[in-house]
Design a protein around this nucleic acid. Structure first.
Lengths: 321, 321
DNA sequence: CGGGAAAATTGACTTTTGTCAGCGGCCGTG
DNA sequence: CACGGCCGCTGACAAAAGTCAATTTTCCCG
């Protein structure tokens, strides 16, 4: 909490340079150090979030397509990463998402974070910030897979970037029997963490696919064959490690009952639910999530936006006829 | 709300430069314009709040003196503008205050703003920001004095800087009879505005002196002689144009009854009350404000901080003996 | 308390950014 | 339709910032 004495000089340099608009040589003179050091301190200030530089994401919400999707799906806000006229579209989604995320966070917030490649990609490009009274909580249990994008890593990395407190979940995501999962959920430590999820101000997650490429399969929570069976039983997407059906409801299956993760109602109790979808093959999972009311704020690519809108129009035509 | 087509390019340039970290020549190439134009757009982006650069104010809260004052007066946070080792101390207070203010504001907030030289000085050095869903409301009636720091100007200037909505108060601050003031307060428009004050998330004000130099005297709301009389009757400070006594309660006097301004209870209902004191002669007024619970967040100079702490210590010694 | 490794700092050089006069297109006006 | 004024853009130069190898300082450890 307290500033380390060594960092004091960084704060001073940043204040004089950015707030007072002094030049680096003036700052150097004022602090009796070389200009090169000032340049270095300023870089550190930016890197650690002592100085925050953020760009409005209005460019990406202010768009007819985005408005139409907001209306069609009843969302609070939609951001669309445009086609390659700027930069690579797919890569743009996490960058945009991390800006949007930082725009939505405010001091004192409690933030729920799920996991997966998309979430980790967002964490990875996220700017550092100085949000010491923010708490980042993990939305579901862990798994031991050697992937950077596993639940605890996602939570930790985001907490680190924000200089926030990270609250990890010390339980496995999935257990071998339903009874054990139930028992564990009733353990005070775990119960408390699960209960705290609905107190979050903001949640961040993506929606997973239900095929062999799904992160739950890659991490070994389910075999590819089991996933195929679940898909035949109506699985449409994955949210915080749990399987949902096309209506966005929790699929009634043993796997879900063996999971320790955020209750969907708890997620819906969070006022800002930021869903980010990067891969083009996540169309159906995303529809499921939208149907289930799991999303209030959405970041997607232009292609995906197009498909969502077409879908909504087709649906309303069907209803009209 | 919508981005003007001409501003689109500014957003794009800012996004590529600040978020993607491209160099100006790369941005220029990407957007098919000259690098000089990019430099110009970037300046505009910074000036209009499309890009936001903010520096942590931790340096000024993270200080034993600040902590001691927090404890002694039960405040949420205190910031202290240090002695001249950095820059001019008095001039630093508004600069620091405007940074603190911007740190405390968040999207969707409703902000109450009073008036006076200090408040206007803060507005004047405030960085531009892009907070379009913020509302800035005037905390008290107006007066026609030809000063830049009058109530409507303070409100408007802050709203302009934030790109927020400004809600002015179209009633005089002080009327000639109590009856008329009472009648006016009951007018739906005015009543509504007064009622809306307690819904604010954040308030910004200074505390005025009760002498001939007071802004209420300079602006002609009171004569110097009337002020002297009020002082003898127990006046200790001015908050949003109203006179308070040493305990921080509204002074029982005709002037106050003729005022159209925020009820002190409404002010206390606002969760963050940022009080900024710049001039050294505002020590007693500040004590009155603190006594009345009108302050939760405080920005002062190092000298003032010293005096506050000495006062608190003297008071506790007196109590102990 | 000396020696050595690691970290911090700096001077000198390179790259990047800021600025401004001047050019050219656009629009309203005579 | 020609003219003048205005605004926005650009090229070229000046100023500022970034970088890195060399040097100094700090901090262990024997």
């Amino acid at each position: 909490m307290a500033i380390r004495p060594a960092d004091q000089i960084i704060h001073k340099a940043a204040w004089l340079y950015y707030t007072h608009g002094m030049r680096q040589d003036q700052v150097a003179q004022q602090l009796n150090i070389s200009r090169a050091s000032v340049a270095m301190y300023l870089r550190k200030a930016r890197e650690t979030g002592i100085v925050n530089i953020s760009t409005s994401t209005q460019l990406f919400t202010d768009d007819v397509l985005a408005r139409e999707i907001e209306d069609a799906y009843g969302l609070d806000a939609v951001w669309i990463a445009p086609h390659g006229d700027l930069v690579d579209q797919a890569a743009e989604v996490p960058v945009l998402a991390s800006s949007v995320f930082l725009e939505l966070v405010k001091k004192g917030d409690r933030i729920g974070v799920a996991w997966g490649q998309t979430v980790y990609a967002i964490a990875d490009v996220m700017a550092y910030a100085d949000l010491q009274d923010v708490t980042v909580v993990q939305l579901c249990g862990n798994l031991g897979a050697p992937f950077a994008y596993r639940p605890d890593q996602c939570t930790m990395e985001i907490a680190r970037r924000l200089n926030a407190k990270g609250l990890n979940f010390y339980a496995p995501l999935v257990l071998s029997t339903e009874a054990l999962a139930e028992e564990l959920r009733n353990e005070p430590v775990i119960r408390e963490q699960l209960a705290g999820i609905s107190d979050c101000d903001l949640a961040l997650y993506s929606i997973g696919t239900v095929d062999g490429e799904s992160h739950v399969v890659k991490c070994g929570a389910l075999t590819s064959a089991e996933m195929d069976a679940l898909r035949r039983a109506g699985a449409a997407g994955v949210v915080a490690g749990q399987i949902i059906d096309a209506k966005g409801a929790l699929l009634d299956c043993s796997y879900n009952r063996r999971c320790i993760s955020a209750d969907l109602d708890s997620l819906r109790a969070i006022s800002k639910r930021l869903v980010v979808v990067q891969e083009p093959n996540k169309f159906e999972p995303l529809l499921a999530g939208l149907a289930g009311g799991l999303c209030t704020h959405l970041v997607i690519s232009a292609d995906m936006a197009r498909r969502l809108l077409d879908q909504a129009r087709a649906a309303s035509r069907r209803k009209a006829s």
